[in-house]
Amino acid sequence: MLETHIDQTLTAFFAGDRRAAARLMTAVENGGPAAEAVLEALYPKLTGAPRLGVTGPPGVGKSTLVDALARHHRGLDRRVGVVAVDPTSPFTGGAVLGDRVRMNDLATDPGVFIRSMATRGSLGGLARTSKEVVDVLEAFGHDLLIIETVGVGQTEMDIAGTADTTVVVLSPESGDSIQAMKAGLMEAADVLVVNKADRPGADQMVRTLEADLHMRPAADWTPPVIRTVASSGDGLADLTAAVDAHHRYLTGSGDLERRRHARVRVEILAVLRDRLWRRAQRDLTDHVPGWTEKVLAGEATPYTAARAMLAALIDDDPEDDE
């Protein structure tokens, strides 16, 4: 996006234009200087609206649950922003993003904005820029942000680092297949949900999860295990109550402050890393072949090469960064 376009789009965005919001999300997702300009302009508009992460293995009914949660909050006249992340194929770079299918009732609700994202080479369940896209939704005035990702036991901490409250969803069918991923899922969870609780095996699963939770070291917050049938709405009231309770706990205990503090710290480091890397790529890439030759010829080590290049980078005038 060109700079003139960015200004126009930002103006439209602040006037409440949905098309502009969508375009800013694209700019943010595509990264680069445009993304930074956008995020900087939006930063003062961030409201601190609650962020809910929903994760769990494929097929447990996450999208149906997100749909039901969003409808619940719409009933309370809250505006809801949803970011749904699905994996990019490592072979083709393409992706099929199908989470909207289960959110058809929200498709034309002006108080809801749904954005699908592909992970685009990011290793975690989140896309690299999911958090930033959520920022755009937050700055657009949404009262609740929901981030939905596939979680298979390794990547949940990503979402836990982005959301205030992380809901881990399982279903009776997940049964044995989740053993391997259980540790990761349980660690990330602030609230555990057994969805499709009308199916055989649900009771067993709830008992196992509760037993596992008792094994954890004592903490101020013990994740409750909630049974839901998202397709019929059963258990949703319990779930929203649990999420609210967790939010109260976070604010009351100061944990929310700590989490957000940590998040800002991570964010600063990420921006810094991103900038340094971009600058290194711009200024130093040309020097790499020369140093490579020297290392191969035994005239230098990779460490002396890196030290020399870093010194050259820091000596540069920071003003010509962009």
């Binding site: 993003l97 909207r100 299918v101 498709a107």
Partner: peptide, 23 residues
Amino acid sequence: MEVIYTGLRQSPEMIAEAAVQED
């Protein structure tokens, strides 16, 4: 390509709104 698949039974309003949100 990134394909946003909305599934069956989409009204023109649903299609246009999704196209805009998804840019």
